Simulated assay, not measured.
Amino acid sequence: MAYQPATDRYDTMKYRRCGKSGLLLPAISLGLWHNFGHVDKYENSREMIRYAFDHGITHFDLANNYGPPAGSAEENFGKMMREELQPYRDEILISTKAGHEMWAGPYGEWGGRKHILSSLDQSLKRLSVDYVDIFYSHRPDPNTPLEETALALDQAVKQGKALYVGISKYNPEQTKVMKGILEELKTPFIIHQDRYSMFDRHMEESLNAVLEDEGIGAIVFSPLAQGLLTDRYLNGIPENSRAARSSSPFLQKDHITEEKVNQIKKLKDIADARGQMISQLAIAWLLRNDVVTSVLIGASSVEQLKQNLVSIENIEFSQQELDEIENILKG
């Protein structure tokens, strides 16, 4: 039987304008960085994508090198597009990126025109689509002029291969330069993707002000500080956790300090009083920031996705709660 999305899929999700653009993003977007590659069980990935769309998550965030192996997340999502989601293409936002290492040789990464445009062509084939909704420069290239990267993004739009463009992990000054170039080219540059959580607030130092002044939306990743902002590490490090694996590229054991655990326990008290889990509190706290268009979550199961989606049911904070959280985070 062909997949039929839930008829009430737009009833509970909140949608937020991306900067000053005409594009609305769901308050929570689904990232396919891990758990959607060929090393993972396709049926599980498929069920998470279905559940997300059934509950109003219209935005699926990818990159050329997501997997593992690199490219396989796009291939799996492309399979879903061909087999189930194609009738709903106009309801779905697909984003992808180029800039991190993808293939061998001198053209397989960074921000040069050759890599950016070749990578997008490869991504479109893997995704089984004619265009992506948002195409990002995944990181600034210290050895390539920003003008060259900007012109490659502009060409992607002019060729009809992307509707909007964005950047990821650019500092405030680089962001302003890219905005100026792309504005002159009349390229729809609408979004910046960066890391942001209760435990990583570097965006607040100056990037937020630039995004607000320039009318650029923000989508933030690692909202749970790679799992720290959950109840998982309150009583030690579980054997099956990310931090327990010495080869993990994610959270490391030495990140889980006594100070951090004490902060998490105090945050749990606030979450409990609000009727939330720690993770739900952490996501809601990010959405209090008007510059944040969407919070990008990862998931390894439908149950985890379901828990994170509950976050949008309570994103209002009293001043007392905000003050208490601030005091906790300051230590």
Rank of each mutant, 00 (worst) to 15 (best):
L234R: 07
V261I: 15
K260V: 15
D213H: 10
Q263R: 14
M203V: 07
S248V: 14
L211H: 13
L146M: 14
D154H: 10
L251Q: 07
M203N: 06
D269K: 13
E183Y: 07
A152W: 05
K268L: 09
I237R: 03
S168V: 05
A150C: 15
E205G: 00
E212W: 03
S168C: 11
D269I: 12
I216N: 02
K169M: 09
R139I: 13
L234T: 11
A162E: 10
E212T: 15
D213R: 11
D213E: 15
G215N: 09
S248Q: 12
M203I: 05
T187N: 10
T230L: 05
S197V: 01
L151W: 02
I216Y: 07
E184S: 11
L153G: 00
F250A: 12
V157T: 01
E148H: 08
K161P: 08
E204K: 01
K169H: 07
S241Q: 11
E214Y: 11
D254K: 03
R245N: 15
Q174A: 14
L163H: 07
R201Q: 14
P145M: 10
N262R: 13
L163V: 10
I219W: 00
I181V: 11
D154A: 04
N143A: 05
V210R: 03
D154M: 00
E173C: 04
L207D: 00
R232I: 12
E204V: 01
Q155P: 00
L153E: 00
E204R: 01
T175M: 13
R139P: 02
V261C: 13
L229G: 04
E205V: 06
P188A: 10
T175I: 12
P172A: 09
P172G: 05
E147N: 07
E183F: 04
K253C: 02
T175H: 13
N262P: 05
E147F: 02
T257N: 09
D269S: 12
L251T: 09
R139A: 11
E259W: 04
E205H: 00
N208M: 05
N235R: 07
T149V: 08
G160Q: 13
N143R: 04
R232D: 04
M178W: 10
T175F: 14
A244K: 01
K169R: 10
K260G: 06
D269H: 06
L153C: 01
A244Q: 03
S246F: 11
S137L: 11
M178A: 12
P140V: 09
E183C: 06
P145I: 11
T257L: 08
I219P: 00
E212S: 14
L267G: 01
G166A: 04
R242V: 05
K158Y: 02
G215Q: 09
N235F: 13
T144F: 06
K176D: 15
P249L: 12
R139F: 08
A152S: 06
G160Y: 10
N143Q: 07
K161H: 10
K266P: 01
E214W: 04
L251Y: 10
T144L: 07
I181E: 02
F221S: 02
K179Y: 15
P145L: 10
L153H: 01
E204W: 00
F199L: 13
K158R: 14
Q193I: 06
L224F: 12
K260M: 14
T144A: 06
G215S: 11
A156Y: 03
S241K: 11
H192F: 12
